[in-house]
């Protein structure tokens, strides 16, 4: 089996069979991560550059661990301490890094489409680690993996995505991935934070959290992306929390085994209360654990022949 693509730019550009292959391969890496020695030599002749033009803790650490556990050589780069501040263009920066014989690029960038642009101009493989409000494919894949681990199958599953849909790359990638795997998706949030016409992606829209959660088998609670919002989209955080936050009282009143996910970082007390985030129904830390295995699978499957 081979992936149909050389890059992972977004879930939009890959097929259901690719997702299936990545999830299956991730199983093998999860087993590796539970061994006494959590390292295999598969990518020992590969050099990977992690280019983070935007802040990240989880994704960056997760990628770095995945790379190191596959024995790849890793170089890190963050925009705050680089020539970007001196006015260098993205293409120049990347070409300079590639001139030092780097095989793969993992990139996070604040501008949507930056990895797609880069792919047209350079030869190395690119993995999108989040581009602005566009896509965050590895997060969607690890969410799918976590759901599959919990439910056994994605087909027919009801998954709700709640919160700031407009500014969330996690939402878009998850919608594409869940659609391709045959799950049903419903998004929920204040009307100002749900893009017009999003139903055309083949999903449902709701403005009522309780109704949405009654329908759902699993819910992905998203953070309010204050750093990407240029104006006020709702009166106050307190009001948002009352209408669209998941707290213990609401969860208890549903009286069902709802699986709760969150891509992090959590704003406790806003979209999710501390009691819910730390409850047994939350698989937030499983998601983080699975993230390393899923990223190992992606790197492993994308690593290309030496002579190509």
């Amino acid at each position: 089996m081979v992936l149909s693509t050389r890059h992972l730019l977004g879930i939009k550009y890959i097929q259901a069979s690719d997702i299936q292959l990545i999830l299956e391969t991730a199983d093998n890496f999860k087993e590796v991560l539970n061994r006494p020695i959590k390292k295999v030599p598969s990518l020992r002749d590969i050099t990977i550059a992690n280019l983070f033009f935007e802040n990240s803790t989880r994704t960056r650490l997760s990628f770095e661990l995945a790379e190191k556990r596959l024995s790849a050589d890793v170089v890190n780069f963050s925009a705050s301490s680089s020539s970007v501040k001196k006015g260098e263009t993205l293409l120049d920066t990347v070409n300079n890094i590639l001139a030092m014989k780097v095989d793969m690029i993992v990139m996070r960038h604040p501008l949507p489409g930056a990895p797609v642009f880069l792919q047209k101009h350079i030869d190395a493989q690119i993995i999108n680690a989040g581009d602005g409000t566009h896509e965050h494919p590895t997060q969607a894949l690890l969410d799918c993996y976590s759901l599959k681990e919990k439910f056994g199958e994605l087909k027919g599953l009801n998954v709700a995505i709640v919160g700031d849909i407009s500014h969330s790359r996690v939402a878009l990638s998850n919608i594409f991935a869940l659609n391709k795997m045959g799950a049903n998706v419903k998004v929920c949030g204040p009307p100002t934070l749900i893009p017009k016409g999003i139903e055309q992606l083949g999903i449902e829209v709701s403005f009522n959290l309780r109704e949405t959660l009654k329908w759902a088998d699993a819910v992905n609670m998203l953070r309010i992306q204050l750093e990407r919002q240029d104006k006020k989209y709702f009166p106050s955080l307190r009001e948002y929390s009352n209408m669209f936050g998941l707290n213990e009282r609401l969860l208890a009143s549903l009286n069902k085994e709802l699986v709760i996910m969150h891509p992090g970082p959590i704003n406790r007390g806003v979209e999710i209360s501390s009691e819910v985030a730390d409850s047994d129904q939350a698989i937030i830390l499983d998601q983080v654990e699975n993230g390393v295995a899923v990223r190992m699978a992606i790197l492993y499957l994308l690593a290309r022949r030496n002579d190509e």
Binding site: M1, V2, D45, Y300, L301, A303, D307
Partner: peptide, 9 residues
């Protein structure tokens, strides 16, 4: 591993 056309399963 990387001498083959497809990654080993």
């Amino acid at each position: 591993f990387r001498k083959r056309s497809a990654p080993l399963q």
